[in-house]
């Protein structure tokens, strides 16, 4: 059953909220959500309270106190979105946010009972007010949840980029030190950033160092091979360094062959090879 209230009740509740805006704001600043303004100053919190009240009043007047998609509540989302996102970043869980918001309800209902408690349609109005405040809670928690999802996606992306740096070792020599467990997505990103770097730096040799990689499965090995082949197509040579003995053993047992891809034991060996490749040699400096 859809909740419907007659228009008089809607208007009554909306008028009540606007009329007692100041009182409710003061109550809200003492309890729950708005009391924890943190870095925000009190004036800003007060302004937020007033805007939220106006928005709830608007939703109530339009007969959509129960609808979190009502224009009023959309305003609330826009208004509190940043605040909620900030709290989520500081580690507040959506259920904490929900709890803080639930504390806003009691002062409003108390105020209503004190002023209008003896009216005939008291119960219907109380239900309407209660509904409006519950919807507020729902709308804000939804905002908190989507802020959380955004943060996770952002961090994943960041981790992905952070974990695959491309380092220029010398003119025309690049290295990608891979660290940690490689999954398909990460090796894909490593592959793409290495190949792009080959173009950007006109690299002749690119070193994929897997010293920091604990295990390698068939799929990741294939990605490494594909990277080497793609680099070759672009006119650069790919060297894989840092294959630890256990990994080499596992790879052989899995039937993975690196075929004719160039490999070197350590990054240092790979660098020495790369320098030779571009026609440089390293000599001990003459002491004077």
């Amino acid at each position: 059953m859809a909740m419907t209230f007659d228009q008089n009740a809607n208007d009554d509740v909306a008028d009540f909220l606007l009329e007692h805006e100041e009182r409710i704001t003061e109550d809200w600043l003492r309890v729950g959500f708005f009391a924890q303004h943190g870095s925000q100053d009190v004036e800003q919190a007060r302004a937020d309270c007033r805007a939220v009240l106006a928005a709830i009043a608007d939703a109530a007047r339009s007969g959509r106190a129960h609808d979190p998609a009502a224009p009023g509540f959309l305003q609330v989302r826009a208004l509190l979105g940043d605040l909620v996102a900030m709290r989520t970043r500081h580690g507040e869980s959506p259920s904490q946010t929900a709890l803080e918001l639930s504390r806003l309800k009691q002062p409003v209902l108390d105020l209503w009972t004190r002023h209008r408690g003896n009216e005939a349609n008291h119960v219907a109005h109380t239900v309407l007010l209660s509904t409006a405040l519950d919807t507020l809670r729902l709308a804000v928690v939804e905002t908190a949840l989507s802020a959380g999802a955004d943060i996770i996606a952002y961090q994943q992306q960041q981790l992905m980029e952070l974990s695959t740096p491309v380092i220029k070792l010398w003119d025309n020599v690049l290295a990608v030190p891979l660290i940690g467990t490689l999954d398909s997505a990460r090796s894909q990103v490593a592959m793409e950033s290495l190949l792009q770097a080959i173009v950007d730096h006109q690299a002749a040799v690119a070193i994929l160092d897997i010293t920091g990689v604990p295990t390698i499965d068939t799929m990741v090995a294939q990605h490494l091979l594909k990277t080497a082949m793609a680099a070759r197509l672009m006119g650069a040579e790919c060297v894989i360094s840092g294959i630890r003995p256990q990994i080499a053993q596992t790879m052989v047992q899995l039937g993975i062959e690196l075929g004719e891809v160039n490999t070197r034991g350590t990054l240092a060996d790979a660098l020495a090879y790369a320098l030779r490749r571009i026609g440089l040699s390293v000599n001990r400096a003459e002491t004077a």
Binding site: E192, V199, K226, M229, A230, R232, L233, M234
Partner: peptide, 18 residues
């Protein structure tokens, strides 16, 4: 000369490492 990265990856996936 100048095979682009995305083209190189695609050729390798396609089974055509030239």
């Amino acid at each position: 000369v100048g095979i682009r990265p995305a083209v190189a990856i695609t050729l390798v996936e396609l089974g055509l490492p030239l």
